[in-house]
Design a protein around this nucleic acid. Structure first.
Lengths: 177, 177
DNA sequence: CTTGGACAGTCAACAAGGCTGACGTAAAAA
DNA sequence: TTTTTACGTCAGCCTTGTTGACTGTCCAAG
């Protein structure tokens, strides 16, 4: 998927091996990295404001979000998604359970596992956070158009570690239509 | 906010005003946000490994990076780019100066300002960090092709806060060709 | 059946790096 | 001269990352 044959025999600017590879200079690559920094910084800020109101941080956000998207997942599964240590997650998780945002129940088949699900209040917050970020996304996507959005997503997907890409893409799949 | 199809007087489920707006559903937007999370997580990990070897963190990385890209910038300018408080920056900056990575000299025209520049050692580290991230970017960009890269950058630029976009784009401009 | 290893989860203690607020100094601007 | 600006620093707080030890559960080999 994704590709886009990089065709275009160029001819003008700076042909290299029959192709224009100007978009692969160090400066171009660096710009990509820096744009990720700035875009991520501002994107996350929308939700941060909502979280601050309730005394939560980004860790709570990430936790709520993925429990929302994968109700019933275990602590270990969540750890793999977030790539933090158990205690980092557990501290936040304990808080969210105490605040009645997340319910943690003993697993049916394996009683060592916990099944994590959002309460109604938790889901309301998860949805509010998602909406805050979607507003920005919607404006940008609309201005960019469907093809640019597709390209944007392909490039981001390509940046995920090879051995984790499949899991990540499966995770973000739309599941409730 | 956050509705579903953002208009559409129903009818079928596709064309609106002659265009297909399926790429603007909440699920699509959420996928964009999540892809940013996963891509950023893995992109930053490359540099993190290098930093950990020297006992530095991401704060040091950001600091080194922007002093590298804008040699001679002042503390206040750096604060505006990073959006952190003076104390957060100063803690890290003091360390980097002590480690002889950054040199802080009194400004020429305004002696209240400090002009921050990298030492040779600092520049070597900044380049190494950049290279680590460029490797991933290069592979992804090459696979995506120039048009997708252009789209990717446009979308990211669109995500930056309106009132900060100009400054950010000016900052990432190639300056030494 | 028992026992030992592996796995899931919890908790304690610590470090990094954000934050606010207050204060001091030097230099520029009014 | 007075005020404002740029910078540095102290004290103290909070979130969120880390490691390491611990409990409880499952499963398989003896």
């Amino acid at each position: 998927m994704s590709h886009k044959p990089a065709s275009r025999p160029s001819r003008a600017a700076k042909p290299v091996g029959g192709e224009n590879l100007l978009f692969l200079t160090d400066a171009q690559l660096r710009q990509g990295v820096e744009l990720m920094f700035f875009a991520y910084r501002d994107m996350i800020a929308d939700a941060d404001r909502l979280l601050a109101d309730r005394g939560y941080g980004r860790a709570h956000h990430r936790c709520l979000h993925f429990v929302w998207r994968r109700p019933g997942l275990s602590v270990t599964e969540l750890l793999e998604i977030l790539r933090v240590t158990k205690q980092s997650l557990n501290r936040v998780l304990r808080q969210l359970v105490a605040d009645d945002m997340i319910r943690s129940t003993v697993g049916d088949v394996d009683r060592r596992r916990r099944a994590l699900v959002l309460t109604e209040e938790g889901e309301a917050l998860a949805r509010a956070l998602s909406s805050a970020q979607n507003e920005r996304m919607r404006r940008v996507f609309r201005e960019a158009g469907p093809e640019a959005v597709q390209a944007f997503k392909s490039v981001l997907a390509g940046m995920i570690d090879d051995d984790k890409r499949e899991a990540a893409l499966a995770l973000i799949e739309d599941r409730d239509a």
